[in-house]
């Protein structure tokens, strides 16, 4: 909207409107932020203070005992490492599948292009569901393995279509110029299209990373071996214990940490990497999401 920047030009009613609006947005923003602050405060408070219900906004009796407890817990580190393996391995695998495929699908000279596109888009509308997918993974021997998690969730139609739409929007003369310069399809993709599609690829990468980092359901279902479990599954075990039983915390009442503070600390540890990459990719996804959303 064409914004008039100078507030002095506004009528009194408009000024009031602008300020009230700003206040409401601020309120919404704060209410979005509050739960995170609450959890962070819990994680840094004395266990006793938490169990006796003193922590509401800021930490009470600041201590890092909960973090110490987490740091010396080997199960935490194993699951943390596993999450990194799944996230990095999974994202790279996804990109290795998705990017070349989206490029190929975007080329008009590809034979059967329409049919391949339908084949991929169809899976967005219909899928076999949880049980057949699980049985299939079992039949492929991918239960309880790193590979199963990494390969089994490598592609999804939405990301492919998002990227394909972006590639389609690149003017054809870029490909043609590169071809005249002697580039083959691999080189055209690598040296021209990938650099040009940075926003879209960043968006897809972000989606992959986030879904890998956050994914817990299938990891919970497919992995039995404790040593392969990712952070979210480990965290879930902690949290469900927490919700199931109030007695755990009372037994720890005297300690510097409580069950609440420890699980809060793990949550914080799990959120931090997301927070770290978030600003870098954030600027891309407005554009990227629109690209994917509009067509088909």
């Amino acid at each position: 909207m064409s914004q008039i920047m100078n507030m002095n030009l506004y009528s009194r009613g408009d000024k009031a409107f602008v300020y009230i609006n700003m206040f409401l947005v601020a309120l919404f923003t704060i209410s979005t932020l509050y739960p995170f602050i609450y959890v962070a405060s819990l994680s840094m408070s004395m266990g006793e203070a938490v169990t006796s219900g003193q922590v509401v906004l800021t930490p009470v009796q600041i201590t890092f005992a909960a973090y110490e407890k987490v740091i010396f817990d080997s199960a935490f580190w194993i699951s943390y490492r596993n999450t990194f393996i799944y996230t990095i391995g999974g994202t790279l695998t996804s990109l290795a599948f998705i990017v070349p495929c989206a490029y190929a699908l975007s080329r008009p000279q590809l034979l059967g292009r329409k049919y391949w596109n339908i084949m991929i888009a169809f899976t967005m509308w219909f899928n076999a569901g949880m049980i057949p997918f699980f049985l299939n993974m079992r039949d492929l021997g991918l239960l309880d393995s790193y590979l199963g998690i990494i390969i089994g969730f490598a592609c999804n139609a939405f990301n492919i279509i998002l990227l394909r739409n972006f590639f389609e929007a690149v003017p054809p003369s870029f490909e043609e110029a590169a071809r005249m310069d002697g580039a083959n399809d691999f080189q055209v993709l690598w040296k021209v299209f990938i650099p040009l599609a940075k926003p879209a690829i960043a968006t897809v990468t972000l989606f992959c990373i986030v879904s890998r980092w956050n994914g817990f359901f299938w990891a919970m279902v497919l992995l039995r071996d404790e040593s392969k479990v990712p952070l979210q599954v480990y965290l879930r075990q902690m949290i469900t214990q927490l919700s199931d039983d109030d007695t755990f915390s009372s037994s720890l009442l005297e300690a510097a940490y409580s069950f609440e503070t420890v699980s809060a600390a793990i949550m914080v540890c799990s959120i931090i990497p997301v927070l770290l990459i978030y600003p870098f990719v954030q600027k891309y996804f407005n554009k990227g999401i629109m690209l994917g959303g509009v067509k088909e």
Binding site: E176, A177, R179, G182, N184
Partner: peptide, 21 residues
């Protein structure tokens, strides 16, 4: 024969300069 092997060069209407280079 593929364009690259024809030893011809082309100047496009929109120039098609690679923006990242």
């Amino acid at each position: 024969i593929a364009p690259k092997d024809r030893d011809v060069a082309m100047v496009f209407q929109n120039y098609a300069l690679y923006p990242h280079l």
